[in-house]
Amino acid sequence: MSTETTKVLPTEQQQVLIELLKLRFEKNKKRHENLDWNSIEKKLQEQPEKLWSLNEMENTGGEPDVVGFDDNTSEYLFVDCSPETPKGRRSICYDLEGLNSRKEHKPAHNAIDMATAMGIHLLTEEQYRNLQQLGDFDTKTSSWIVTPTAIRKLGGALFADFRYNTVFVYHNGAGSYYAVRGFRGLLRV
């Protein structure tokens, strides 16, 4: 991941990413009916730091796409739409406290700090359930989701997946990690 001082992509790389996002947008119209690409592209060009975050999502296997528009904030919502949890964000604990609680076999990173470094947020349970209305995601993997403070204070963390045509939300210790568990991110533009 890049440092704070390099959170703007070179112009040529911005254009390549915008073209990729446009193709994905056009290929998956069901995810964003009634939204106009030209309006989205204009907002992206006005906020190059958001393109940097989208590039981080793309580089870690997230396949970000627009899944909605927030009328209250006038922001487009980009979410990782890869069929399975992004490959470049797997085998991680929930947060730094969970990571530090491990005595041995520590993973390389944690979901909360990775998301923060990328400029994105983990999905809430509601956002995760909404994503599942647009397709079948995490049928073989699982994704950490935002955990309520009361659960986190007791050492737990939540994750979700999609099995048997149903979204399941589970708990685990925040320090746990598995090869098939990562996280999906949300970026507001």
Rank of each mutant, 00 (worst) to 15 (best):
I18C: 03
I18G: 04
I18E: 04
E19W: 01
L20R: 15
L20Q: 15
L20F: 08
L21D: 02
K22E: 14
L23N: 15
R24W: 08
F25H: 01
F25E: 03
E26V: 00
K27D: 06
N28A: 09
N28D: 11
K29S: 15
K29C: 03
R31A: 06
R31E: 00
R31I: 02
E33L: 12
N34M: 05
N34K: 12
L35A: 02
D36G: 02
W37K: 03
S39P: 01
I40G: 03
I40S: 00
I40L: 01
E41R: 13
K42V: 06
K42R: 13
L44K: 06
Q45W: 03
Q45K: 15
Q45L: 15
Q45P: 04
E46K: 10
E46W: 01
Q47E: 10
Q47V: 00
Q47W: 04
L51F: 01
L51N: 04
L51Y: 04
L51A: 03
L51Q: 05
W52E: 11
W52S: 11
S53T: 09
S53Y: 08
S53A: 14
L54C: 10
L54G: 12
N55E: 01
E56C: 01
E56G: 05
M57S: 15
M57Y: 10
E58Y: 08
E58F: 06
N59I: 03
N59A: 09
T60D: 11
G61V: 09
G62E: 10
E63W: 12
P64W: 02
P64D: 06
P64G: 05
D65T: 05
V67L: 07
V67P: 08
G68T: 12
G68D: 09
G68Y: 15
F69R: 11
F69P: 05
D70A: 13
D70M: 07
D70I: 12
T73F: 14
S74I: 01
E75D: 13
E75H: 09
E75Q: 15
E75I: 07
Y76K: 00
Y76H: 07
Y76P: 00
Y76T: 07
Y76C: 01
F78Q: 06
V79C: 05
V79F: 15
D80V: 05
C81A: 14
C81Y: 09
C81E: 02
C81T: 15
S82N: 14
S82L: 08
E84G: 09
E84T: 09
E84N: 12
T85L: 05
T85D: 10
T85W: 07
K87C: 07
K87E: 09
K87S: 14
R90A: 01
R90Q: 15
R90N: 13
S91P: 04
S91Y: 13
S91A: 13
S91W: 11
C93D: 07
C93Q: 00
D95L: 03
D95G: 11
L96D: 15
L96N: 03
L96Q: 12
E97Y: 04
E97F: 00
E97N: 10
G98R: 05
N100M: 14
N100V: 03
S101D: 08
R102V: 05
K103F: 09
K103R: 12
K103D: 07
E104M: 10
E104K: 12
E104V: 14
H105M: 04
H105L: 13
K106H: 06
A108L: 14
